[in-house]
């Protein structure tokens, strides 16, 4: 929160798929700022557009209107070398630890490719790779291992290291714990919580699970059918939700104070 200018500026973002009558609007009028060194959690259910938002932030989806600016560069307008440079400023940690690493290449290869996309030589960058593996609490000999030798949680650690080794300005974490068991999820969340303090990460953490993001976010954005229905400091969103949908969402979590298992009067699927 040192800098005044936000690292990520999303302005009136619109994304739709298809043409003419079959147009489906996925995101509508999204405006979000992410300040340097903060984590913004984007929470929503399926169909809320949260994954599309992640893809738009990394430039994989082209908006139909509005703008996404990261570090002062317009993501959608950037071309060629500038675009490549831009892309390396934003790193995405993908959801599925089983498909995010190439089964034919060692962990070292995967990280070396991140450091140097052209030559991808492990020997040249071995020190850097090992130090990042240690940062995510993986032993140095992981370098020579193949993804299938690692557990889901270990792979997710490697994926995090790969995302960070580029020293990106922004990290997008897309449902990075949803494929993991609870105990492994807790480890990964602890790791993220530590790294974001130690490295001063600027992060967009996308999740369907409100409980998961509480521990690690400064601000929370609630998406519903492609629109931001609530955006505020984490404590405020959890303790004093303003929008009806946020309340529904919070009260739907089993164990939450507002959760009530007894049947309600009118509700039809």
């Amino acid at each position: 929160m040192a800098d005044d200018a936000p690292v990520i500026e999303v302005r009136d973002l619109e994304v739709s798929y298809g043409w003419g009558r079959s147009t489906t609007r996925v995101l509508h009028g999204i405006t979000i700022d992410v300040a340097k060194g903060t984590t913004v959690a984007v929470v929503g259910e399926s169909g809320s557009g949260k994954s599309t938002l992640a893809k738009t932030l990394v430039g994989a989806v082209r908006p139909s209107a509005g703008s996404v600016t990261i570090g002062g560069i317009d993501v959608t307008a950037a071309r060629g070398a500038r675009r490549t440079a831009m892309r390396r400023k934003v790193q995405m940690i993908p959801q599925d630890p089983y498909s995010s690493l190439d089964p034919r290449r060692t962990i070292g290869d995967a990280l070396a490719e991140a450091v140097d996309p052209r030559r991808a030589k492990v020997t040249r960058h071995a020190d850097e790779i090992v130090s990042w593996l240690e940062t995510v609490r993986m032993p140095a000999d992981t370098l020579h291992r193949y993804p299938h030798e690692l557990s889901g949680g270990q792979r997710q650690r490697v994926a995090i290291a790969r995302g960070l080794i580029v020293r990106p300005e922004v990290v997008i974490a897309d449902e990075i714990t949803s494929a993991l068991d609870v105990s492994v999820q807790a480890e990964i969340l602890r790791l993220i919580a530590r790294l974001r303090v130690e490295l001063g990460l600027t992060m967009v953490f996308i999740s369907h699970n409100l409980a998961v993001v509480r521990q690690i976010s400064d601000e929370v954005v609630v998406l519903y059918r492609g629109e931001v229905v609530e955006h505020g400091p984490a404590d405020q969103v959890y303790d004093d939700p303003q929008h009806e949908y946020t309340r529904t969402l919070l009260n739907a979590v089993p164990g939450a104070p507002g959760f009530d298992i007894e049947p309600r009067r009118r509700e039809v699927a």
Binding site: P94, S99, S100
Partner: peptide, 26 residues
């Protein structure tokens, strides 16, 4: 469609390198 290909793309690996490094071996 696997995520390691889209990740490589985001890391700025060129399409031809993606083809030789990730697509063809797999």
């Amino acid at each position: 469609q696997r995520e390691f290909v889209s990740t490589a793309r985001l890391l700025g690996v060129s399409p031809v390198r993606i083809a030789f490094r990730h697509l063809l071996p797999n």
